[in-house]
Design a protein around this nucleic acid. Structure first.
Lengths: 190, 190
DNA sequence: CCGGGATGGTACAGAACTGTCTCAAGAGAG
DNA sequence: CTCTCTTGAGACAGTTCTGTACCATCCCGG
């Protein structure tokens, strides 16, 4: 075999651990290392071989989630598009990641680099809100922090409703955009 | 002293524990019994005298929070008022309770009575949404579950913004109502 | 002044979790 | 086939949390 460009030679176990940890800690942030190993179908010792301790795994997960989100957003956003269209694109990209993203809300990440990266993401959203305002898509008299918070919450609840089957995945992004810009007080605007 | 109508003869310690537990577990659901005792300014032994174990305390806290919310809502809602007005009243009543209410989102309550009571609260909100729809304040084509989720999220984020000082407490309920009904896409409606 | 009840501090055993180690088994490359 | 690397299983000690018990102290009412 040629020298692997991929640094992980046999990634199955490692990937299974990462997946199980994200899935499990999303629902129960206090879940035990043993439980993670069990759900990953992996021995607890193997888990410790890949990740020295809880913090190391948690930090990696956070980095993965942030990177996945950045990637998804970057792939969807069209540079020349209107801010209004970029908002819609962001919803479309990020809502399906809800289950991988959600544990970040609860996790207490100590790592500086990770928190800085997260803050950077929020700032990007704030910048998008600024563009929405100058386009007239969002009212100027609303605090930007409030709009950012609403976008965050909409992503979360949209994924939540999709995951529980109450809303079709295809409708989620539209519904989120509509809710943010026009509210739920009248029929859908053109 | 006459036989106390109040079943708790010397409530200071007990109250301090309840308060500290709500405050602490809201931020850190995994906080230890020792930490709760420490923050309550009470010996750990005393804590165990009042509450046999974690579940007992947690269940009581949930019941208290639900009762507080019911009480606050009931005191504010005017029977004859429009659903639109009742929504505003609910926001005004519940947003200030955010810090006491928030830990319920994360806590895993096993108690049947408590979860039933919580479900009942959600159903009341759903009923309010139904009335909003028949009044024409909320569009009929939006799933009720979505509206309920938005109301829940608005309460949480409104309290959050108030708590972090980014938004004035007096404006919070108005902003939440506006966001829900009219969205953030245009200047405030009359 | 005196006694009962609540409290704080501490000690203790049991349980759960963590992190490390060892050893046997299995899968894949050469 | 053989060698190497990874894995699963389990043992182990150390730490933390839990729930209980005990005792000295304090406050309150009588």
């Amino acid at each position: 075999m040629r020298p692997a460009l991929n640094p992980s030679p046999r990634p199955t176990a490692r990937d299974a651990i990462i997946d199980a940890a994200i899935r499990l800690w999303s629902r129960n942030p206090g879940a035990t290392f043993s439980e993670v190993a069990l759900h990953a179908g992996v021995g607890r010792a193997t888990l410790h071989r890949h990740f020295r301790n809880r913090d190391e795994l948690l930090t990696l997960l956070a980095e993965i989630c942030i990177a996945e989100t950045n990637e998804a957003v970057a792939a969807t956003i069209v540079q020349g598009a209107s801010a209004r269209r970029q908002l819609q694109g962001m919803f479309e990209a990020v809502i399906p990641l809800g289950d991988r993203y959600s544990f970040l809300y609860r996790a207490e990440i100590g790592d500086e680099h990770t928190t800085a990266e997260y803050r950077r993401q929020l700032e990007q959203v704030a910048a998008l809100v600024g563009r929405l305002k100058s386009e007239g898509a969002v009212a100027a008299d609303v605090p930007t922090a409030w709009v950012v918070a609403q976008i965050d919450q909409l992503i979360w609840s949209a994924w939540n409703e999709v995951a529980s089957g109450r809303i079709a995945a295809a409708d989620a992004a539209d519904l989120a955009t509509r809710t943010l810009l026009y509210g739920l007080g009248k029929e859908k605007q053109p």
